[in-house]
Each structure stands twice: as structure tokens, then as C-alpha cells.
């Protein structure tokens, strides 16, 4: 296998720019949403399931198949659990209409 300098540099560019995007985006999230933020970010790195799928696609032999299966199971737990639990948390941040007017009378 070979890795060209261009591939390496592209990856480096993506890495650095994505890190800045992550920093900027998260700096604007208010404290009260930090728990859903942690959980939501957790769901996003569940994309590792795609990596496990790629291993599965090129699997021959029992060891690689076992690893692929384990990877897909763990990755799916991360992705499904992560998004569902975040949705459950965020569902509760509903604003009730009329509440603001009731406050100062």
C-alpha cells in the first residue's frame, strides 16, 4: 500500500479545519444545553459504524468476521443509543405557550 503526499496533506487540511469548526460551534452552546451537547457529539462519533461496515465488506476468515461483527454491534449501539437519548433530552426543552405572560402579573 502507498499513501501519497497529496492524500496526507488533504487529510491534514480537513483535520485542522474541522477542529476549528468544532471549537467555534461548541463555544456558542449555552450551559443549560451542555448535557445534550455531550450526548449529541457522542452520537456523531457513532459514524465509526461506517468504518466497521467497511471492515465487514472485506471480511474473509473467522477472526476478521468476528471483529467486523463486534465493531458493527458496538458502533450501532453508539449511533442509535446516542441519537435516541439526545432526542429524549431535547424533547423536554419545549417552551410552553403563555408561560411568559403569567409570570409578572
Amino acid at each position: 500500500m502507498e499513501i501519497s503526499a497529496f492524500e496526507l496533506l488533504s487529510a491534514l487540511f480537513i483535520l485542522v479545519l474541522a477542529a476549528f469548526v468544532g471549537y467555534e460551534v461548541v463555544s456558542k452552546v449555552p450551559t443549560m444545553l451542555h448535557t445534550p451537547l455531550m450526548s449529541g457529539a457522542n452520537a456523531v462519533h457513532g459514524v465509526i459504524v461506517v468504518g466497521a461496515m467497511l471492515v465487514a465488506a472485506s471480511s474473509e476468515g473467522p477472526i476478521r468476521i468476528a471483529l467486523a461483527l463486534l465493531g458493527v454491534i458496538l458502533g450501532t449501539i453508539n449511533v442509535v443509543g446516542g441519537f435516541v437519548v439526545t432526542d429524549r433530552m431535547l424533547e423536554m426543552f419545549k417552551k410552553r405557550p403563555g408561560e411568559q405572560t403569567r409570570e409578572r402579573n
Binding site: A18, A19, V21, G22, Y23, V26, A41, V44, H45
Partner: peptide, 9 residues
Amino acid sequence: IAGTLVGAS
């Protein structure tokens, strides 16, 4: 991209 995003955040 997703990994770096989460790593930084």
C-alpha cells in the same frame, strides 16, 4: 471530519 469535530468539541 465527524471524529475531529467531536474531538475538538
